[in-house]
């Protein structure tokens, strides 16, 4: 870990300014991903702006009937919130399916959105990685890719976005609220927040330098039944091979996004229209143009089967699902 200086910011714009004005400066919230990466010198900030005193740690009702989740609300608090559990179950379930109790106690809402990929080649600094070091190549291509992306990837990078929370936010059409060093506010639909890698896998999101997340806004509740089906090799404390976030309405319509398959939560709205035809129809459309490797081709049938599991459960009481 390289040396850095450390400060605690007391207001959001000042924090954004501190980062914008200083090359190499970074914001520090929970730190559960940033410190991990700093120890390996994958991240090498020279200055950390700790935002824990900024507030942003409450969940408020919005005038539109939705919820405004402060950027620093911990994963645990968000998942445990009674309104989230009642009206946005998919979000609660997605968060609880991720990481561990200890990590969820520390990780923040904003930090969870910003977590970086878990591609093993990104994590080994001796390996070529365009995301870690632009232009160095991608050692994952042709390598061990069982966990990696099957769609939306590029010849530069086949990593996935590893999170669960954002996949649920994607079906909920959440909006990421930001402020920049000039005090300018911006609302970024979650669909536009994470990027496809293209030629610039080093850029995970559409955030601009110095832009600070203040909140995530959930629109009015969708009703329906909420599911988060996460498939992994071990039963807990593991990243998804494939996950499915879904909100299914009584009439069989609904929304579906997939995790563990792409650089971002993968939702194809056109595919959702096919829900009444069953899981295979939905995934055939959602994964059109997929480019899996030999190692991870199983993710395509797995996505279908995981969605089928969700659809089979829709309409049965939660207690019976186990």
């Amino acid at each position: 870990m390289r040396s850095f200086t450390y400060e605690r910011a007391t207001d959001a714009v000042a924090a954004a300014r501190a980062v914008a004005q200083r090359p190499g400066a970074k914001l520090l919230a929970g730190g559960t991903n940033l410190l991990d990466l700093m120890k390996l010198e994958i991240e090498t900030p020279t200055h950390l702006v700790d935002v824990q005193d900024l507030g942003f740690d409450t969940i408020e009702k919005t005038s539109e009937g939705g919820l405004c989740i402060g950027a620093l609300v911990t994963n645990t608090d968000l998942a445990a919130d009674a309104r989230v559990r009642r009206d946005y179950g998919v979000l609660s379930r997605a968060i609880l399916a991720g990481a561990s109790g200890q990590l969820r106690n520390k990780a923040s809402t904003a930090g969870n959105l910003l977590q970086r990929t878990r591609c093993p080649y990104f994590y080994d600094t001796n390996m070529a990685c365009n995301k870690r070091k632009p232009g160095s190549g991608c050692a994952a291509i042709g390598g061990y890719s069982r966990q990696l992306g099957v769609i939306g990837v590029s010849p530069s990078c086949i990593a996935t976005f590893p999170g669960d929370m954002a996949v649920a936010m994607r079906v909920l059409d959440a909006v990421v609220e930001t402020v920049d060093a000039g005090g300018q506010r911006r609302s970024i639909p979650i669909a536009d927040f994470h990027r496809l890698w293209g030629d610039h896998p080093e850029q995970d999101t559409t955030l601009r330098p110095g832009e600070l997340i203040t909140a995530v806004v959930l629109p009015r509740p969708l009703g329906g039944e909420h599911f988060y089906e996460k498939v992994r090799d071990r039963a807990s404390y593991a990243y998804a091979l494939v996950s499915v976030a879904a909100v299914i309405q009584r009439d069989g319509s609904g929304r579906v996004a997939f995790g563990g398959v792409a650089p971002k939560p993968w939702r194809v709205e056109a595919a959702e229209a096919l829900l009444p035809q069953g899981a295979a129809a939905v995934t055939a459309r959602a994964f059109q143009g997929a480019t899996p490797t030999k190692d991870n081709a199983f993710k395509l049938p797995l996505a279908t089967r995981a969605l089928a599991a969700v659809l089979a459960q829709a309409g049965t009481p939660a207690q019976k699902r186990g």
Partner: peptide
Amino acid sequence: VPSHVQGDLT
């Protein structure tokens, strides 16, 4: 605080 294996979140 709820958990992943909880049947009924509410």
